[in-house]
Amino acid sequence: MRIFTPLLGALALILALSLGTARAQGFLSAYEDLPLPPGMTEVAESGLSFDMPNGRIVEAFARGPLRATDIIAFYAATLPQLGWTRDSDRQYRREAEVLTLETQTEGRNVVVHFTIAPE
Rank of each mutant, 00 (worst) to 15 (best):
M1R: 09
I3Q: 11
I3W: 10
I3C: 13
F4E: 11
T5I: 15
L7P: 00
G9L: 15
G9R: 15
A10V: 14
L11D: 00
A12S: 10
A12I: 11
A12N: 08
L15W: 14
A16D: 04
A16R: 11
S18I: 00
S18M: 12
S18Q: 10
G20I: 00
T21F: 05
A22P: 05
A22F: 06
A22Q: 14
R23D: 09
R23Y: 06
R23K: 07
A24N: 13
G26A: 08
F27M: 13
F27V: 15
L28V: 08
A30N: 05
Y31E: 14
Y31D: 02
E32G: 09
D33E: 12
P35Q: 07
P35K: 07
P35R: 02
P35T: 03
L36F: 02
P37H: 06
P37E: 14
P38H: 10
P38E: 12
G39I: 08
G39L: 04
G39Y: 04
G39M: 06
G39T: 11
M40C: 09
M40V: 06
T41Q: 12
T41W: 03
E42L: 11
E42I: 09
A44H: 10
G47R: 01
S49I: 13
S49L: 07
F50G: 03
F50M: 12
F50Q: 07
M52D: 15
P53N: 10
P53Q: 14
P53W: 00
N54Y: 02
R56E: 01
V58L: 04
E59N: 10
E59Y: 08
E59M: 14
E59F: 07
A60V: 06
F61D: 12
F61N: 05
A62S: 09
A62R: 00
A62N: 01
G64S: 07
P65C: 08
P65L: 09
R67K: 14
R67W: 01
A68W: 02
T69D: 15
D70G: 09
I72A: 15
A73P: 00
A73T: 05
F74S: 03
F74C: 01
F74P: 03
Y75I: 01
Y75M: 05
Y75G: 00
A76W: 01
T78E: 07
P80Q: 04
L82Q: 02
G83L: 04
T85F: 03
R86Q: 02
R86K: 08
S88E: 03
D89R: 03
R90H: 08
R94T: 01
R94H: 00
A96R: 14
A96I: 06
E97G: 00
E97H: 04
E97Q: 09
V98R: 11
L101G: 08
E102V: 10
E102S: 12
E102D: 11
E106F: 11
G107Y: 02
G107L: 04
R108H: 15
R108S: 15
N109I: 09
V110Q: 00
V111P: 09
V111T: 14
V112F: 05
V112D: 02
V112E: 04
H113Y: 11
H113F: 02
H113Q: 13
H113G: 07
H113P: 01
H113M: 13
F114I: 14
F114N: 07
T115Q: 13
I116A: 04
I116F: 02
A117K: 11
A117G: 14
P118D: 05
P118R: 04
P118Y: 12
P118C: 07
P118E: 03
E119C: 04
